[in-house]
């Protein structure tokens, strides 16, 4: 009776001029994004940037006020042909409508409705995560995350969106999650889009990263290519300011300590080499978390 239908290859998931307002409040503004098939994306942004809303709309769990979500060129909303290819794993809380279910019944529904559901994989994950068969609202936060993850992975959906999957997981559990995710990715080449606050830890898992800031897309490229464009430049304040003014650079972030200053700067390799050649200045690389704070911290000045 249970025949595992092999999932088709993933297709591009696109946000087409997506707008979303909650009442008068705009949450997403004219968003144009494409998630290419078969890659692991990180979706990062501050609280309220619109990550959850975006993921919800892209998977048909939320509706757009303007624009549309497209999968393989077809609209997602209320489209049976497309919906089976998408899965959105939400952050579950005890207040969720689904929290009154037992773990088993929840997953049973997944088996019933997800066209490519793999029950063997689900059983394997339940064992690996040591999930008890309790009511979801009786589970710890970490266990709730794991239930959500289990359903997402076992759905074998070609495009899987995960909203803060690591919420409530301790470090060991997080590492385990990344490992399981990468294993599944290597096995199936599914597209994964993962939103997270724990940026640096997850950075090495993301091939590409999308940064949202106040409902707009601020970056959408290969993780390491993005990070390569940023450096911390530090040195005596006067010299640093002179060097920056000379090249007409506006720093993204500034930190002052006495006469010493450090700035975060975006630019090209050539520029950084030039700056590094100057005696008084030190040029250092930034990691993804640093880049994110520089881009979305809105020039918070310190010192």
């Amino acid at each position: 009776m249970t025949t595992i239908t092999k999932a088709p290859a993933p297709q591009p998931l696109q946000a087409d001029k997506l707008c979303k307002n909650y009442g008068k409040q705009p949450v997403l503004q004219d968003l144009d994004l494409t998630f290419e098939p078969g890659r692991i994306y990180g979706l990062i942004g501050r609280n309220g940037a619109g990550k959850t809303t975006l993921l919800g709309i892209l998977s048909g769990q939320n509706y757009a006020t303007g624009g549309r979500a497209l999968y393989g060129g077809q609209p997602v909303w209320e489209n049976s042909a497309v919906l089976g290819n998408l899965h959105f794993a939400r952050e579950m809380s005890a207040a969720s409508e689904l929290a009154g279910l037992s773990v088993k019944n929840f997953l049973r529904a997944g088996r019933l409705f997800c066209p490519y559901w793999d029950q063997n994989y689900a059983d394997e994950l339940i064992k690996k995560f040591e999930l008890p068969n309790k009511m979801i609202n009786r589970l710890s936060r970490g266990q709730m995350s794991m239930v959500s993850i289990t359903a997402a992975l076992a759905s074998r959906a070609p495009v899987t969106l995960l909203d803060e999957p690591t919420a409530g997981l301790d470090v060991v559990a997080r590492e385990r999650f990344y490992r399981i995710l990468l294993d599944e990715y290597q096995r199936t080449g599914r597209t994964f889009v993962i939103s997270t606050h724990i940026i640096e830890e997850a950075a090495s898992v993301f091939e590409k990263v999308v940064i949202l800031d106040e409902g707009k897309e601020v970056a959408d490229q290969n993780t390491e290519d993005l990070v390569e464009q940023f450096r911390y430049i530090s040195g005596p304040a006067a010299e640093l300011d002179a060097a920056l003014a000379e090249r007409g650079i506006t720093p993204l972030q500034t930190q002052v300590l006495g006469g010493h200053k450090m700035v975060a700067v975006r630019g090209e390799e050539a520029l950084f080499e030039e700056l590094a050649a100057r005696d008084g200045l030190t040029v250092e690389g930034m990691n993804l978390q640093n880049v994110f704070v520089a881009l979305c911290g809105h020039g918070d000045e310190e010192g």
Partner: peptide, 14 residues
């Protein structure tokens, strides 16, 4: 690629 990715828990593309 896959062995390295698995060993270091990184994306195979990297």
């Amino acid at each position: 690629t896959n062995e390295l990715a698995r060993a270091f828990n990184i994306n195979p593309a990297t």
